[in-house]
Amino acid sequence: MRLAAEALSGERGGEVIFSGTSFAVACGEALLVTGPNGAGKTTLLRILAGLLRPAAGRLALDGGGEEWPDVGPACHYLGHFNAMKTALTVEENLVFWQRFLGQARMTVSEALEAVGLEDIEHLPFGYLSTGQRRRAAIARLLISYRPVWLLDEPTAGLDRASEGRFGQLMRGHLREGGMIVAATHLPLGLEGAGELRMGEEAT
C-alpha cells in the first residue's frame, strides 16, 4: 500500500495557502509535516482525511484494494479536538468509537492500559486533565484498525513520559506496516521518518 499525493494545493477562505506539494508514504513509513504556523499543515491533513477538497492535485491510496479504496476510510484522524463527550465516561466514549468505527483491534481496557489510563476508565471524560484527555483520544487510534494515522499535533498537552509512550505506540504501528502522517513541531521519536517542510517558499 502506498499513499501518494501529487501537486496538491489547498486553500482556506478562498486563499491558496500551499500548492504543488507532492509526497509518497509507503507501508511502515512515517512523514513529519513541519513548518511555521499558518503554513497549511492542518489544511493538508484535513485534505488527506477527505474533510476538505484539494484545490488542485491528486491524492490516492494505491494498492488498498477493496477494503481501503481511499485515504478517508483508511485513516484515523487525530485533530486538535479529542472527539470525546465530557458527560460520558472514558470507557463509554471509547466503547462507542470502537462500535462505530468497526475493525476492532485492541479491547478498550487494553488500549487504556497502553496509554496509562486504566485506573480512571470509569470517570467522566470532563474530569480529566488536558494530557489525560489527549491520551484517551490516542487510545481511540488503538481500538480499531486503520492503516493510515493522520496526526495533527498529537503530543499537544502530553508530558515527557506520555510522549515516550506514544512514540512506542507509533513505532509499533509502523512495524505492523502502518503509515503515519503527522503535523508537528517536536521530534516524535520516529527515526528515519521523512520530513515535509511547508511554507518554505513563502519565507
Binding site: D119, L123, Y127, A161
Partner: peptide, 17 residues
C-alpha cells in the same frame, strides 16, 4: 473524590515512571 482520583492516577503514573 472522582476528580481527585483522576489527579491521583496521574501522580501514580509519574511515580511509576
Amino acid at each position: 473524590m472522582r476528580r481527585m482520583s483522576a489527579r491521583a492516577a496521574e501522580g501514580k503514573l509519574a511515580e511509576g515512571q
